[in-house]
Nucleic acid binder design. Structure first.
Length: 419
RNA sequence: GUGGCCGUAGCUCAGCUGGCAGAGCGCCGCGUUGUGGUCGCGGAUGUCGCGGGUUCAAAUCCCGUCGGUCACCCCA
């Protein structure tokens, strides 16, 4: 094969039709679900001042090694967004919308990491953010929204994991307890986990390495360090989930990688996915983030769903398949092409999706093109029709045959046939 | 950054104990000098990723390199 001179950069890919249509359709479904729940879209810049993302936590991988950074000509340090929560919060602080602010977003994010199945350097997320509500039942709403969206797509093979990291004080106390525990058994941990321990003891809980399993399994539980208020909040979230019929599993070791999470965290995994990356969505509370970005103390919660992974999960379950996406009418013209030109344009101007063949090919060839186009009807113009001032309307999707109509009645006939 | 596997037609891949570059699908044409979808017949398409080496001879063996993919870490 002649190697292409240029190819899409590592971790990026082209989506051609019909994959692109499916991608867009997923976004449309999400927009409908979110709009229908009272969320309004926020469209955010794809790059920000790096400081915006440093608030995600100086120790997180996303910030320390996965950001695409660059300087603009004015010497400002910028970064392609690795996620959109930080941008959304920045926009909230900057624009001061009315509370509560319920926003949804969709679009690409960028992380400079190595690729594997379900992980790309440019990847799309859809998500929501709610600023200004402390009510545990908004946690439930947000989680249920993600769940119901996946259900709407047709996904069934999913697991919802929920946990509470406690409030900021609980979290700090728990991290101390964890550090002490892991340090006491550091000799049993893998080398990588010992390094992680130095940076962030919480994330040692995430280790999937076999040699860490027993140490992790016996680690102190977050649940034992929750304040009364945090425990009550978490219980109410769970009551809410039961009330709306969203099945869940409490996962005491679900910590997630962004440092800003407090209290409720959750993750939705697809068990249909045969990849290492089975989390198709996740989110949680980030009550301190608005303040860190310069705003008044404001509670916040949200989620982000990975579009590529979701589509992968849909593939695995045979869900969210798209039907025919063809035009309504395909015009076949063996008299030179002028008739096809005028007919397609008349149809298009009347709102009928129409296409045609070029280069004056044989009728057989044009009919094959008509069939491939997915059109319901073919409009044929040969010398007979032209001389008679007529066209032939042929149904391509059933064997009801074809009929001749006067050239001047084409629009009416087509609209009637499509109705 | 590290490791496993893979690079052959537009796509999916066979060929790999060295000996004429193949199949299926797709595409084009014909059967039907005005009719697609089924069927039959015919046809076009290759820097065998790239560079070097071994050999009478390399898609096949060796070295290097680039790319892809999966995995670790972490995340959607």
């Amino acid at each position: 094969m002649a190697e292409p001179l240029l190819r899409a950069p590592k971790g990026t890919r082209d989506l051609l039709h019909p994959a692109s249509a499916r991608f867009r359709a997923l976004g449309d479904v999400f927009a409908r679900v979110a709009n229908g729940a009272g969320y309004g879209q926020v469209i955010l810049p794809m790059f920000e001042h790096v400081e915006v993302f440093h608030r995600l936590g100086e120790a997180t991988d996303v910030v320390t090694k996965e950001m695409f950074e660059f300087d603009d000509r004015g010497g400002r340090r910028l970064a392609l967004r690795p996620e959109q929560t930080a941008s959304a919060v920045r926009a909230f602080v900057e624009n001061r919308p009315m509370l509560p602010w319920k926003a949804w977003y969709a679009g690409p994010n960028f992380r400079a990491e190595n690729v594997q199945k379900g992980r790309y350097r440019q990847f799309d997320q859809v998500g929501v953010e709610v600023l200004g509500l402390d009510d545990a039942l908004i946690d439930t709403e947000v989680i249920a929204l993600a769940w119901d969206f996946f259900r709407t797509l047709g996904l069934r093979d999913m697991t919802l994991l929920v946990n509470s990291l406690g409030d900021a004080g609980d979290r700090a106390r728990y991290v101390d307890a964890l550090r002490e525990y892991f340090n006491s058994r550091a000799a049993e941990l893998s080398e990588q986990s010992r390094e992680t321990l130095a940076r962030n003891p919480l994330r040692v809980l995430d280790s999937k390495r076999r040699e860490d399993a027993s140490v992790v399994a016996e680690a102190p539980l977050l649940a034992d360090h929750l304040s009364e208020a945090a425990a009550e909040h978490f219980a109410r979230v769970q009551d809410g989930l039961r009330a709306v019929g969203v099945p869940f599993t409490v996962s005491p070791r679900l910590v997630r990688g962004l440092d800003y999470y407090v209290r409720t965290t959750f993750e939705i995994q697809s068990s249909a996915l045969d990849a290492a990356q089975s989390a198709i969505g996740g989110g949680g509370r980030y009550d301190g983030l608005v303040e860190q970005l310069g705003g008044d103390p404001t509670p916040g919660i949200g989620f982000a769903l990975g579009v590529e992974r979701t589509l992968l999960a849909c593939d695995a379950e045979g869900a969210f398949t798209l039907g025919e996406t063809g035009v309504d009418v395909f015009v076949v013209d063996t008299t030179g092409g002028l008739e096809a030109l005028t007919l397609t344009h008349e149809l298009r101007r009347a709102g009928v999706a129409a296409d045609r063949a070029f280069e004056n090919r044989s009728m057989k060839s044009q009919m094959k093109a008509a069939d491939r186009s997915g059109a319901r009807f073919a409009l044929l113009v040969g010398t007979d029709e032209r001389d008679a001032g007529e066209v032939t309307l042929r149904d391509l999707r059933s064997d009801t045959g074809q009929l001749r109509v006067a050239r001047t009645d084409v629009l009416d006939a087509v609209k009637k046939a499509l109705a």
